[in-house]
Design a binder for these strands. Structure first.
Lengths: 355, 355
DNA sequence: GTGAAAGCGCTAACAA
DNA sequence: TTGTTAGCGCTTTCAC
């Protein structure tokens, strides 16, 4: 029965030094690819490493280094439940990470204000910080501010909305085109043979995530559900009040709206509209991000489905990735892939009050 | 701008010793709740700890202790893609964990054979192992073998199918009742106004996960979709060949089957049946677990949806939990909650060939 | 009951 | 170009 091991402790730097017949310091130099070691010596050491099957103990290394990771999240300052969820996850994780030599903090900058974000990024001192995660739009000034950070050795992650044109290291978030496609498929399947118009409520033309969702949505509706027609977007700027104000006239103007795809934030406006004005026939509504509000709309039957991404996963993933980049160690793509979650009212996770 | 810290290093045991005016050894005794310290001293030390806001550096502690975690997974030996996925995730994780003083191994025991599993568990040497994760049925003998392990200080996790009557520490897996409910809701919504019978293909009456799924499924169909009737289960024992053989007669006997809920393994049999015998009208099919086969059935349109749980997440979660129990440190329930994933063909994750 | 000192695996001065 | 040594934060003998 080959199940438990006799805890054969792994080879250490000392073993390497002994086998390679060099000192500890030399082993360390080779391991960390520091200069000033003869080629022959490097080879000797590497041979010993291979022979022993050495794997470095990262914890011990970090301890010796006295290294503390300093990471920063920059989120949009807006009245937005999903962003609040992210922030509370950051705060939560921050506590647990104190014992792992990792400090994370969070700042908010005005939403839909690329200049403010760019300035905030530019104001950062690269010497005081090891990694930054940004949730924001993709504009030239922001791109440049990210490049500067990268040039100074700070690792940069883009969150929720990608900034692919920049030199950010990694994007953490769902595939938004696929999310839009998924919403379309659910919409089409739920509507069955019903025909009519679909209203898409989007956020901002600047937000790449919103654009991508719309793109994916349109494609699948056009290909698979010819009986449905997607109307021009209602640009809600993630603002519940604006959405609530605009909705009645848009709905009246369009007529025969059988489905609504709320692809951005501001669901509160949508919910208020349908709770007050009780239409004759309620459209199928699919929204984004599981938050207290969308959860209750799902539970009450107002929303038919919610496409979401896990805030806790996003934050943990961003931190793991910033750390990996700081160490320049590899990342596990499977673990960091953010899934497109589909919630119906039957698979809602137990409500933990936003832990 | 309150963003980056000046890296104020955390208080250490030395600080506590200094503030409390005792030696390092005494601080350690208090921290680890070891006996032989006067009450007054304990109080002094605890006051210093609170005052300084001390948090222990687990990595350093483990280093000093020379502790190596030895964990074991026990999976059913069966021709089952999902279990294979679990095993490959275990193998994958095992590599990355070598640098984190954690050894994980995996053994397979005959499926649907409670005695074999109980014996395997009883054969384990508690001194050689810190934690065990079991994927298996809930029977008295298995429950007892788990109790024995726990009594010897080994932490035990139940995976995928819970064993609540035992003294296992934690269950890692989805809420299977909710999964069944979710499948029912999708089935009902996809079928719209169609009426007819639903066939449920289950695995074994012994498997708690299968039973719970069926239970949830029945409830929601009965409550929300009166036009549908759920037939008696086809017990497929996770065996593709058996399922393929049984399916034609079951289908013929029932007549008017508009939907199939494949709540267990053995999807290959289902797929083969529908690929060869082309029925007049294909039923809506909802299956469990995203595997290479179910993925391609989803892509081809044979399956309408797949309810799944992430194998990587399951395995990582089990390891984190076994470790937490060994250290008796707290776990983060939000991170360990396994989500009920819904896959349609539009939100399939990119195919990585099973990483 | 309490303390002093060595050491876990690794890194980083500082010498040589 | 290489080696010696002290020390990261914590645990653990072994004395006192």
């Amino acid at each position: 029965m080959k199940n438990s091991h006799d805890a054969p402790s792994n080879p250490t730097v000392n073993d390497i030094a002994r086998v390679a017949q060099v000192s500890l310091a030399t082993v360390d130099r080779v391991l960390n690819e520091r200069p000033g070691v003869r080629d022959v010596t490097v080879k000797k050491v590497n041979r010993a490493i291979a022979e022993l099957g050495y794997v470095r103990d990262t914890a011990a290394a970090n301890l010796a280094r006295g290294k503390i990771y300093r990471f920063l999240f920059i989120l949009p300052a807006a009245n937005n439940e999903f962003v609040d969820l992210l922030e509370s996850q950051i705060a939560h994780l921050s506590k647990g990470l104190k014992s792992e030599r990792t400090q994370i903090s969070c700042m908010r900058v005005p939403a839909f204000d690329p200049m403010a974000l760019a300035e905030a990024i530019n104001a950062l001192d690269p010497l005081q910080i090891d990694g930054v995660t940004v949730f924001g739009p993709e504009t030239p000034s922001i791109r440049d501010s990210i490049s500067r950070l990268r040039a100074h050795g700070v690792s940069v992650v883009s969150l929720v909305a990608d900034i692919p044109s920049s030199e950010r290291n990694t994007y953490v978030g769902i595939d938004n085109v696929a999310a839009g496609r998924t919403a379309a498929q659910l919409m089409g399947r739920f509507l069955g043979s019903v025909q009519g118009n679909i209203l898409v409520v989007t956020g901002s033309m600047l937000a790449r995530d919103h654009l991508e969702r719309r793109l994916g949505f349109d494609r699948v509706i056009a290909r698979d559900f010819p009986q449905l027609r997607v109307l021009a977007s209602l640009e809600g700027r993630d603002d519940p009040d604006l959405i609530e104000r605009l909705l009645p006239q848009t709905l009246a103007g369009a007529g025969d709206v059988v489905g609504i795809y709320s692809s951005a934030a501001g669901n509160a406006g949508l919910i208020r509209h349908f709770e007050s004005a009780s239409e004759l026939a309620q459209p199928v509504i699919i929204a984004h991000e599981l938050t207290p509000l969308s959860r209750s709309a799902l539970a009450s039957g107002l929303f038919d489905a919610v496409i979401s991404q896990d805030a806790g996963h996003l934050v943990r993933s961003a931190v793991r990735i910033m750390r990996a980049h700081s160490d320049n160690s590899p990342i596990n793509p499977a673990q960091e892939r953010i899934r497109i979650d589909i919630y119906l009212n039957e698979n809602l996770p137990p409500d933990t009050g936003g832990t």
